[in-house]
Design a protein around this nucleic acid. Structure first.
Length: 353
DNA sequence: GCGACAG
DNA sequence: ATCTTGTCGC
């Protein structure tokens, strides 16, 4: 999949790596008598933050007969789990067959048997994606300046759900609200080859969301609109969350709305009240990049994506009505639609199987 | 030892 | 996000 960026005078092409394919073929290259760790594979890909994701990929490995995920263990030399038939016992047997010494559920002298990331000879994809985020964030930030005047009369809200299979199937849904009323809905189904890794959500969900937004635009163009994305914008380790990324690609105002923080500290002491909600700034290295908004026991975190100022993003989000739900009504609808679709497809697949 | 870690 | 093979730092 290639994505073209056209903004200002730059054009950047990005080829999304197929992480599933890369990791599974890597496991076949683990030398006889060696093991590696979840963290080492993540380092090989360019970011240790992917360690947990590697574990999830192992758990989803349906070709465990050919792809030796039993050779991946914890960095503190614990054996780790094994969800293929036989469980941990089978994992220990397979390791023993490879002459790997195990005592008390731990590998003895892991260092001696460790296949390190340096020996993997992998291209550090995550590092180059990170560099791209750093590069793009400069432009995204610029588009948030002098953008307090924009109006967001019409809103597009997007969400993605998944069917558990390989590769992951994404069901992406967008809802257009015109003057507070639902006026258009779009749903798309697309395979994704990039797993969820904290800080890299965009590379998993960007394409499915763009597909379903594009579908909305096919019917007709609408102005005076902004896009609400389930995830962060500026509130991101490289100041380029999925909301920023989508805003830059579409040249449209985007607001990131997430249920959990990825970075930053809430400045609770600075909390203020708006109707039945309270809100407070979120700071990263002393810089305010977003806001937390609370209603009853529920929390959301808002930050600008692109083409909208921090203050305006807060103002627009505060004005959304919540009903009796855990998040604003606008955010729930696409979520309900894609989850419904997911269940329906899941049942269909199960009944055929 | 516990929390942090968008979806 | 689903239905559970992590790691580091305080």
């Amino acid at each position: 999949m290639i994505i073209n960026y056209t903004f200002i005078t730059y054009r950047v092409s990005l080829e999304l790596p197929n992480i599933y394919g890369i990791v599974y073929s890597l496991l076949k290259k683990i030398p006889q008598g060696k093991v590696t760790t979840y963290g080492e594979v993540a380092r090989g890909l360019g970011d240790l933050k992917a360690a947990r994701t590697i574990g999830r990929l192992m758990a989803k490995n349906i070709w465990y007969k050919y792809i030796p995920c039993y050779k991946v263990v914890h960095s503190d030399s614990r054996i780790g789990k094994y969800s293929a038939p036989g469980g941990v016992k089978k994992k220990m047997e397979l390791l023993a067959k490879d002459q790997i010494p195990i005592e008390n559920g731990k590998i003895v002298h892991l260092n001696k048997y460790l296949w390190s990331h340096k020996e993997m000879n992998l291209f550090p994809y995550l590092q180059s994606l990170m560099r791209m985020q750093q590069y793009l964030s400069k432009y995204a930030l610029k588009t948030t300046e002098h953008r307090s005047h924009i109006t967001c009369k019409n809103k597009i809200s997007c969400d993605v759900a998944y069917i558990d299979s390989l590769p992951d199937i994404a069901i992406s849904s967008c809802v257009l609200f015109e003057n507070e009323n639902v006026s258009e809905i779009s749903i798309t189904i697309s395979p994704v080859y990039f797993p969820y890794i904290p800080g890299y959500l965009a590379f998993r969900e960007l394409v499915p969301i763009l597909f379903s937004i594009k579908k909305l635009y096919e019917n007709r163009l609408f102005h005076d609109s902004c896009i609400l994305i389930d995830g962060h914008g500026l509130l991101h380790p490289r100041k380029l969350g999925i909301a920023s990324h989508i805003g830059l690609l579409l040249n449209k105002p985007t607001i990131g709305i997430a249920k959990k923080l990825l970075v930053g500290k809430p400045l609770i002491k600075k909390r203020k009240r708006y109707l039945d909600r309270t809100y407070y700034p979120i700071a990263v290295n002393g810089e305010i990049l977003g806001y937390g908004i609370e209603k009853d026991k529920s929390k959301i975190f808002v930050s600008p994506g692109a083409y909208i100022s921090l203050d305006k993003a807060l103002e627009v989000t505060l004005s959304l009505s919540w009903g009796n739900r855990r998040e604003p009504y606008l955010m729930i609808l696409p979520h309900v639609i894609s989850s419904y679709f997911r269940k329906h497809l899941d049942n269909l697949i199960r009944s055929r199987a």
